[in-house]
């Protein structure tokens, strides 16, 4: 199991924060900040785990997740979804799309770290 994380998120400050936390824990953090070609970024970076924002310019996180799940190479990859929309139906949509783990913003840094470790492990 590698330690490459692909972070797909459009808010620069959040990218910086998550990158900082994960990098300190020893992860290789790749970032991508729009929805259009997210799936291309996945192929390019070949990550072990994906952290995905829901509201992205160009394409929503749910659509990207469906694309990932339909992909022959990355269909099984763990995806941690972060969303600023905390309603029940958002969670349901994420689960239908096949999310591995779902977290609502704002999150605590420790929780993100735990989640990433758990998804990547053992």
């Amino acid at each position: 199991m590698g330690n490459t994380v692909l972070l797909i998120e459009d808010e620069p400050n959040i990218i910086e924060a998550i990158s900082f936390i994960l990098a300190r824990d020893g992860w290789q953090v790749k970032t991508h900040s729009n929805g259009h070609d997210a799936i291309r970024a996945v192929r390019e970076h070949d990550p072990d785990l994906i952290i995905l924002d829901v509201m992205l310019p160009g394409k929503s996180g749910y659509e990207i997740l469906e694309q990932i799940r339909a992909d022959p190479d990355y269909g099984e990859i763990s995806v941690l979804m972060l969303t600023a929309r905390g309603q029940v139906k958002d969670r349901e949509m994420a689960e239908r799309a096949g999310v591995s783990r779902y977290m609502t913003k704002p999150f605590s840094n420790a929780d993100v770290l735990h989640a990433v470790r758990a998804l990547a492990g053992p």
Partner: peptide, 12 residues
Amino acid sequence: RTPMTSIRAFSE
């Protein structure tokens, strides 16, 4: 939630 995420993350 978006600005609050940054605030919480960096303050932590």
